[in-house]
Amino acid sequence: MSRPLPVLAELRRRIRHLEGTHPDPADGRGPAVLPFGVAAIDRHLPGGGLALGRLHEIAGGDATTTDGAAATLFAAGILARLGGPVLWILAGHDLFAPALAQVGLAPERVIYVEAGEEKTVLLALEEGLRHAGLAGVVGEAARLPMKASRRLQLAAEGSGVTALVLRRFGQSSASGTSANGDDGASGELLQPSAATTRWRISALPSAPLPDIPPTVPGIGRARWRVELVRCRGGEGAAWTMEACDAQGCLAPDRLAVPARLADRPAAPAGSQQHLAAAG
């Protein structure tokens, strides 16, 4: 029998539905997506973009404060492109609103909630996800237990509001070395979670600018290593991207100089590189 039975197709569709994964090209069900506008990433994500009304985790590359900042901007860029009001649930006091405006997230769109405690962050996240009027909710949390992530995922699916959890590990460890080594960023992101995608954003040296005489060269557009660590219904991958612009859009790395490519394993499609699919 060459053609699958309709029963089988229906079962497959229902399994996909249960798994909360991605649109069946045939019936178009599954979540709407927000494309990144970068072919390399969108091609890789099931559905052609970041699934809306789902939970996504974003973390910095390691436990240093700087990568936390890159991850924050990555999240802000996504929210900026979502349009509509956004609830930003803060754990600390260091988020600087003018920088959000510079990646396209205008101040009138953001309602901040000072949650303080981790538990309160998750509680406020869930409450925010219950209200369909929002475009997105982002919460800053160091830990995201499996149970909490599942609750958030369900709440996001119920209301269609996109949930981002910004994992900030480096907050307390000022020196950049977390107290119990393995429990750092990379370890945490391998813990199970119900999130649809998990991202790791690390800062890279910025694109070199043409050298003009002063003793120190100027700074170009920031570049990030964008890693899709886990993706439901897809595979992990990593790219080098130029950081969010004033509209919150990433751009493919224009200056992928051969020297940079050389110290990586073969990267067939541009600067794309596959990791082992996790889950």
């Binding site: 901040y112 949650a115 209200h131 009027g133």
Partner: peptide, 26 residues
């Protein structure tokens, strides 16, 4: 939509305290 957000703000403000919800303005 606005009212949906008002309901959310009330729910959060009454749980966390009204001072904890704000927006930023230049």
């Amino acid at each position: 939509k606005e009212d949906g957000i008002a309901a959310l703000i009330d729910a959060l403000a009454n749980r966390l305290g009204a001072g904890r919800l704000y927006r930023a303005a230049p």
